[in-house]
Every structure is written in structure tokens, then in C-alpha cells.
């Protein structure tokens, strides 16, 4: 199987994730989109590591996982807090920073 298929898959996954972030309003779903984008980049990293035959891309994939784990913890905490105070998980309701 051609190894470029993995890159194409990563692109498709990233596009799906980005579309989710841009179009969905539920914060949890947006968050899932973000995770999808992160994992698409991970897949790309690993693929390129394989293509180039060095381990840098795989190491970076681990870094991304660690950072993503931390980000999930903080992000979910924020979402829960917002939900508690505003009884809503819609990202459009949180627009207090408008100009």
C-alpha cells in the first residue's frame, strides 16, 4: 500500500476536525474537533517519520499527546465551569469579548 495514503487520511481527518470546530456550536463537539485535528497532525508526523526514516516525528507525536492531555483537562474544566454559570455549552453564548 502506498504510504502517501496515510498523508491523505491525515488531511481528511484534519479537514473534518477543522470543519467541526468552525461549524458546530456545542463546546464539547468543538473540543472533539480540536482533538481530531491534533490526532490528524500526529498521524502526519508519524507518516513523515516513516518516510524520512528518522524518529523526530514520532517523538513530536508523543509531545503532542502529552500537551493534548493537559489541554483536555484544562479545556474541559473551563467548559464545565461555563456550563455551570451559564447553563449552556454553546460557544456562541460566550461572546463577552466582542468589540
Amino acid at each position: 500500500m502506498d504510504i502517501t495514503n496515510y498523508v491523505v487520511l491525515a488531511c481528511i481527518l484534519f479537514a473534518i476536525g477543522a470543519t467541526t470546530v468552525l461549524l458546530r456550536r456545542n463546546a464539547i463537539v468543538v473540543f472533539m474537533g480540536v482533538e481530531l485535528m491534533l490526532n490528524a497532525t500526529n498521524l502526519a508526523f508519524v507518516t513523515f517519520a516513516r518516510i524520512h526514516g528518522d524518529l523526530t516525528g514520532q517523538v513530536l507525536a508523543f509531545f503532542v499527546m502529552v500537551v493534548a492531555a493537559a489541554e483536555v483537562v484544562v479545556g474541559l474544566a473551563i467548559i464545565v465551569t461555563i456550563f455551570r454559570t451559564r447553563r449552556s455549552a454553546s460557544v456562541d453564548d460566550v461572546n463577552l469579548l466582542h468589540g
Binding site: 470546530v21 461549524l23 460557544v91 456562541d92 460566550v94 461572546n95 469579548l97 466582542h98 468589540g99
Partner: peptide
């Protein structure tokens, strides 16, 4: 320019 800042995450 301020109008660019809608406040919407998306």
C-alpha cells in the same frame, strides 16, 4: 477596526 472582534469563537 473594533467591529472585527465579534466575540464568537468560530
Amino acid at each position: 477596526l473594533r467591529r472585527a472582534q465579534t466575540g464568537y469563537v468560530r
